[in-house]
């Protein structure tokens, strides 16, 4: 119970830290957003006095000039935690409205990518370990390493170039067709999958190898364990040894990798969504960067961090269900 509170506390602390960080970056860094805004207004209105410019900047950035920096911080924090991320200067809509609408699409791509990456990685890694030293092992180890060294977005650009623009097999952007109405229908689901296919494929192909090699290494380690030898001599059936002994013990360490993957893949989604013009969180983050729309940019950053913290928290809490050694909680080391 203490452990649970500890974990929850850390998660909340992380989000508070992130929001504080974004406050610091927006308000305090010289040459930051406020200076940029000031410069922009000055360019558009050459005759304006600097007091008038400051007033305009404060109005646009929703800053109350009568407040001290601490008061500003408190009011920023409280509005963020009430779900108010400000108004997008580019779109003119509330930031949270834009991002809440985009979030499910990002999660959709992420979930599919993670699912396939780990399914392929675990399956392939197990077979490679089982056939250690064989031609199969050698070939797929090399293939895994090769794909692992291609940046996911480079593969994405290649797919876009070959499969979308040159061969016209896949859409060059968007997340669903206008012709298909949004709703819980098979047609819509297929259409969404069709649009998500290339981003997902870019992720899966460049990342499955890493998981496969990790699974291979873990399995080989387990194959050398005493308990495995004991299980064989006790005459346990092969299926039980494969799943309860090798499989389970080799997959467990991957769980930590999974947690880390959630973070890196979310980060990667930002770039892939921009490349595939797939309107998720990352796409809006880039729109915001191009338009110097700081509320939208920081909002996207906060939403992404919150989603990752929540995902890691979930993974952390459920880990105890599959690894009995983690039930104590405190002693487990995250690698």
């Amino acid at each position: 119970m203490h452990w649970l509170i500890n974990r929850l506390g850390r998660a909340i602390l992380t989000i508070v830290g992130t929001v504080s960080l974004s406050f610091v970056m927006i308000r305090l860094i010289p040459g930051g957003p406020l200076d940029y805004l000031r410069g922009q207004i000055r360019n558009q209105n050459p005759g304006m006095s600097s007091d008038a410019i400051d007033a305009l900047v404060e109005a646009q950035a929703a800053i109350n000039p009568d407040q001290s920096i601490v008061e500003q911080y408190v009011s920023y924090m409280s509005s963020v935690f009430q779900g108010d991320l400000g108004t997008s200067t580019w779109y003119g809509d509330p930031v949270n409205q834009i991002l809440i609408e985009a979030l499910p699409w990002t999660l959709f791509v992420m979930a599919l990518s993670l699912l396939f990456t780990f399914a392929i990685g675990i399956g392939l890694g197990a077979v490679m370990a089982y056939k250690e030293g064989s031609r199969f092992d050698y070939t797929f180890s090399s293939v895994s390493i090769f794909f692992n060294s291609i940046p996911y977005y480079v593969l994405g650009v290649l797919f876009l170039f070959v499969l979308s623009y040159q061969m016209d097999l896949f859409p060059t952007g968007g997340r669903s067709s206008d012709a298909v109405p949004v709703g819980f229908s098979v047609a819509f689901l297929l259409d969404a999958l069709y649009h998500a296919a290339l981003p997902v494929l870019s992720f899966v192909l460049t990342r499955f190898g890493f998981q496969a090699l990790a699974m291979r290494g873990n399995s080989i380690n387990v194959l050398g364990e005493n308990y495995l030898r004991a299980a064989k001599i006790r005459g346990l059936p092969g299926r039980r040894i494969a799943f309860q002994y090798v499989g389970r013990n080799a997959v467990l360490p991957l769980y930590t990798t999974l947690m880390i993957s959630i973070g890196t893949m979310f980060g990667g989604a930002v770039i892939l969504e921009e490349i595939f013009a797939y309107p998720g969180i990352g796409y809006y983050m880039f729109q915001a960067i191009d338009a110097r729309d700081y509320p939208l940019m920081m909002g996207a950053f906060i939403i992404i961090t919150t989603a990752i913290v929540a995902a890691i928290l979930f993974a952390d809490l459920t880990y105890g269900l599959i690894d009995p050694r983690a039930s104590g909680g405190e002693t487990r080391e995250t690698y």
């Binding site: 602390l13 973070g263 960067i289 940019m297 961090t305």
Partner: peptide, 18 residues
Amino acid sequence: DMATAIPGLPLAIVVATI
């Protein structure tokens, strides 16, 4: 732990932009 949970690439993008 906290710093690990903050996504590196988006953070780098934000800092680089600013």
